[in-house]
Simulated scan of single mutants.
Amino acid sequence: MEQLHINTSSKQYSVWIGDDIRYKVSEYIPTPLQQKVSSVLIITDDQVAPLYLQDVKNGLSNRFEVFEYIVPAGEQSKSFQQYYDIQTYALEQGLDRHSLVIALGGGVIGDLAGFVAATYMRGVPFIQVPTTLLAHDSSVGGKVGINHPLGKNMIGAFHQPEAVVYDPTVFKSLPLHEWRSGFAEAIKHSLIWDAQLYSWLQDHIDDFSNIKGELAEQLLLRSIAVKAAVVSEDEKENGIRAILNFGHTLGHAIEKELGYGKMTHGEAVAVGMIFAMRLSEQYYDISLPIDEVKAWLTKLGYETDIPVELDPNQLVHTMKKDKKAQKGVIRMVLMKELGRVEVVSVDEEPIKELLLKSIKGE
């Protein structure tokens, strides 16, 4: 069992990491909150529900009245309609300001359920119970929200959880593409902040089948620690927290232009990180270990090239709508050296030229 403390300006809470702790979620609800909880709403999806919903319910139902809401799995559920339908269900069931929301699932569920919690009756507490490796990034830090047809995560709030209860044994049910999606965010944390973590990941993980037990706990602990350090300095992304978007400016554009679900978030971010490193070499006139990172990603089954069917002009157009953009100027996280990045404004022409070269395989 591992415990990591998250300290932000608005809240302090713990991330609990340990095998089989999904069976006893009630033990990790902070004591002051336990005494106030009137009911619990578990929000999950139709892939996670058959696997883990009953496990979590069994650990809660002897203490609280428990409701459940199941949405279709996938990015399409981060929609206004699903958000509205859950709010309606909560009102119909009589949930009140002392109800607790539990997000049981991956990043989509965490974002959606967290936004429901942030806005239901102007805000109720929630707990993250992640079931994917990808959610190690999204479950910490309080960013919650839904998508809009014109952009990803454009509607949302900052709403910190009361706790994160992480059971790595659920990873055994992950398909390979979900392993890749989640591990890309761990790689990102090492590239932007912790060169020692980068070396540790390379030394210990050259295939996903051995990520279990102590290794899984250490992977989660060390990667989440990077997120925790950044968030503690800048909870609401007024400054340094924006570096967590390394690879995301292009990654989000790829997701949108391909159509959500065609490529997982982490796989798109992996492509975005390689592109950001290439652009960094041009911008700073430096040399970075791109070939080394690409070879490692390729060995783990990632595609590192921009899909050939995408249009550079349209990608740039979408990147200009990124949340970091200012008055239509693209702002990207670029790498100065391994473990050190910064957010800079970049002219669109060099981006467009490099996109074209990358798509052509040059």
Rank of each mutant, 00 (worst) to 15 (best):
P312W: 00
E214L: 13
L250W: 08
I146E: 01
N238H: 15
L33V: 15
F80E: 11
G106E: 03
I42R: 03
V140D: 02
L310Y: 02
D45L: 11
D96N: 14
V71M: 05
Y166P: 10
A118G: 11
D305V: 07
K78Q: 09
F115C: 03
E353Q: 15
V333C: 10
Q202T: 11
L356P: 00
H317P: 00
E27Q: 14
V25G: 09
I286F: 03
L95N: 05
E68H: 04
E185V: 06
D55H: 10
Y69Q: 08
L354R: 12
L95W: 04
A325R: 09
K323G: 09
D347C: 08
W200S: 04
G272F: 11
A216Y: 04
T132L: 06
P307T: 09
Q82T: 14
V333Q: 06
I306S: 05
G110F: 01
Y120P: 06
Y284W: 13
D137T: 06
P161C: 07
T298S: 13
L250F: 05
S181A: 14
P30E: 01
L297H: 01
S209N: 13
Y28D: 02
D85P: 00
A195E: 11
I306H: 02
I6D: 03
E337V: 12
K212Y: 04
T304D: 03
K143N: 01
I155C: 03
K172F: 01
S26A: 12
K327H: 14
Y28Q: 05
V129W: 00
V271D: 02
D55C: 12
G361R: 05
F126A: 03
R331S: 06
G114Q: 01
V231Q: 04
S26M: 00
A117D: 03
V293Y: 04
N238C: 12
V231N: 08
K172Y: 02
L354Y: 03
I330C: 07
F80W: 13
A276V: 10
A276W: 10
L176Q: 13
Q160L: 11
I254D: 04
Q47V: 13
L33Y: 07
P149N: 01
R180F: 00
